[in-house]
Simulated scan of single mutants.
Amino acid sequence: MKYWQKLLTQWREKEKRDGFTIPYIIGSQKYLKNNEYNQNVEDLILDVANENSTDIYIKYCASTGDLILGIRDETKTVIPGKFLKFENGKESNLFLTDFSKNLGNSVEEVALELYDRYQKYIDSEQYSKNGRERGDYEINESDFIKECFK
């Protein structure tokens, strides 16, 4: 299971919550053993879109005031939107909710838009968003990530 799948699955199963912001997921890589991943935003989105075992959605989260990635399971099928296609026409496992449709029309366009939107926060190690303020992980967040990667 990939690092981002571990995070999203554990969050869903243990905390009964929807998902994480993109900087949160990218920043979590610093807790991986042996630095097995070194993805930027574009790499993450392309990886998610190519993953056949898990459908992931991008949606707006009111509590963070930001976009999140979450697992699209049977409880999320009523959310309006569409599965994105790659520029070559192949369908992906990345579901774009109607609220987020202005991000682009293909996986590649969305990946680039999200890179432009979030990479600056990642570069300055502002991985988390608490009280709608960006910053580093709080202790409970880093503990959760470390537990996921055991």
Rank of each mutant, 00 (worst) to 15 (best):
I79E: 12
K101L: 04
I71D: 07
R72M: 10
P80R: 06
T77C: 05
K101C: 12
T97E: 11
L103H: 05
F83P: 02
F86I: 08
E108K: 11
G70Y: 05
P80G: 02
F99V: 14
E91C: 02
N93C: 14
L94F: 01
E113W: 00
N105T: 10
F99E: 14
G70I: 01
G70S: 12
E91H: 08
F99P: 01
F99K: 10
D98L: 14
F99L: 09
D98T: 15
K101V: 11
N102V: 10
N105F: 12
L84Y: 00
E109H: 09
N88R: 11
V110C: 05
G70N: 09
E113I: 06
G70Q: 06
L112N: 12
F86C: 05
V107K: 03
D73F: 07
G89D: 08
T77E: 14
A111W: 01
I71M: 08
N88F: 08
I71P: 12
E113S: 15
S100K: 03
K85M: 06
T75H: 12
L84R: 03
I79Y: 05
N105E: 15
F86V: 03
L103Y: 08
K101W: 04
R72D: 11
P80D: 02
P80K: 15
V110H: 04
S92F: 13
F95I: 05
D98H: 13
F99D: 14
I79W: 00
K76G: 10
L96A: 09
D98I: 06
K101T: 13
E109V: 00
N93G: 06
L96I: 08
E87R: 11
K85D: 07
E91W: 01
N93R: 15
D98M: 13
G104Q: 00
L94A: 05
A111H: 04
E91K: 15
K90M: 09
S92A: 11
R72P: 06
G81M: 13
G70E: 02
V110A: 11
P80C: 02
T97Q: 06
